[in-house]
């Protein structure tokens, strides 16, 4: 059995024919050539594969592509392009929030909406809140401190420069 589905991925709609058993993560990587979608564990434990489905973070390894027919998907490629210009990406770079980078797309896609929400509230979160927000993502390299610092920086700088005003 194959099914035709239409996904709007990073702003462009395209119809692809898929077997129902194919995971959204695999369809994005192979059919849409979006290698920023990383697969770490393929059972929900690491957060590497986090993308946005209709604006909400979701694990692409726990999602069948057929479930997303007609939906809008955003991957890390949509955040700040190849130059990684998004404020959270910049903050990751400055604060050493990554080393090998395998987990990074998942962290960014999990945390970007959290950062936006904090900036909209004009509130710098406690470290404990940041750690809770990223508790579903595993990083084997950094020890997490740099990632926490990056989130703090991304929120603080955007509040100070007055960007993302509500």
């Amino acid at each position: 059995m194959t099914i035709d589905i239409t996904l709007t991925v990073n702003g462009t709609a395209r119809t692809v024919r898929v077997e129902p058993r194919r995971l959204l993560a695999d369809v994005l990587r192979h059919d849409f050539a979006l290698s920023g979608v990383h697969v770490g564990c393929a059972h929900g434990a690491c957060g590497c594969c986090t993308v946005h489905v209709d604006g909400t973070p979701r694990l692409a390894c726990l999602t069948f592509a057929v479930q997303c027919d007609g939906k809008a998907i955003h991957t890390v490629e949509s955040l700040g392009g190849v130059d990684a210009t998004h404020p959270l990406q910049q903050a990751f770079s400055i604060e050493h929030g990554l080393q090998c980078g395998y987990c990074t797309p998942g962290f960014l896609m999990t945390l970007a909406p959290f950062v936006d929400a904090m900036v909209a509230e004009r509130r710098v979160p406690e470290d404990a809140e940041i750690r809770e927000a990223m508790s579903g993502n595993i990083c084997r390299c950094t020890g997490y401190h740099g990632i926490v610092a990056a989130v703090r920086r991304a929120v603080t700088e955007q509040i100070e420069t007055g960007s993302a005003q509500p």
Binding site: L23, H43, G44, L59, L62, T63, F64, V66, Q67
Partner: peptide, 24 residues
């Protein structure tokens, strides 16, 4: 039934479950 998929899909990925029909 397939609801959020947060328990069923990990089980299917690990082949602990192999339903023939999923009703989304």
């Amino acid at each position: 039934p397939l609801a959020g998929g947060q328990s069923l899909v990990p089980m299917m990925n690990l082949r602990l479950a192999a339903p023939e029909h999923l009703v989304d």
